[in-house]
Design a protein around this nucleic acid. Structure first.
Lengths: 101, 101
DNA sequence: TAAGTATTTCGCAAAATTACGAAATGAATT
DNA sequence: AATTCATTTCGTAATTTTGCGAAATACTTA
């Protein structure tokens, strides 16, 4: 199989992926909260605070995890969610380049 | 009709909207190009450069327009596309806040 | 080992996104 | 008035996203 020429650069693809993760108000709310607190929070607290179904919340958390922006720390029976600092820094860098900051 | 309490702040909603516009590699590519050139470019040139259908490109341009990130200047039979500087500055500000830059 | 708790996965339905070719549009030229 | 050109809109199909309740999971406690 010949190496398919890539249409877009890795940075472009990664920035698009992160942007998708940030493209829903709920997910932004979560990210905002986690990065402001510089701490962690529980899934259930967020669900109650936002009057949103637990399974719905879980799905959004999963997407943020998939994009690498957050990580969960098991603390039974809870799970504490935190910003993934390394990837958050990567995201910051990508947007700085995009916006020429 | 009672004023519905808003779940998310205006900034959050706007940031989500902009993120959605930036969540596709092609749209990022266009934005990147336009903001780097600090100039304009034609739809057809992009379509050829990227080997993508004209109607597909048009649809993506429409989304960027809808989010307010670009604007088209009619110059028959061409349309020149440019960054909307005012809204681009707004976007930069929103991401600066999000990333605490 | 059974019950209780927080969270996730599953199954589903509605809506949105993505991509394309064909047809329509709008403006200049013949 | 007909033609030409770049672009958009339309119609369609495949895929993804979103949201929810019910069921499953995993771990602690009684």
């Amino acid at each position: 199989m010949t190496p398919k020429t890539k249409k877009y650069s890795d940075d472009l693809i990664r920035t698009a992926q992160i942007s998708k993760a940030l493209s829903h108000p709920l997910r932004l709310y979560i990210i905002n909260k986690l990065s402001e607190m510089d701490s962690c929070c529980y899934s259930g607290d967020l669900a109650e605070e936002l009057k949103i179904g637990r399974s719905t919340l879980s799905q959004h958390l999963k997407e943020l995890k998939y994009a690498g922006l957050i990580q969960g720390e098991v603390n039974p029976p809870y799970i504490k969610y935190c910003i993934n600092k390394e990837n958050w820094a990567e995201a910051r860098k990508l947007y700085k380049e995009l916006f020429k900051i």
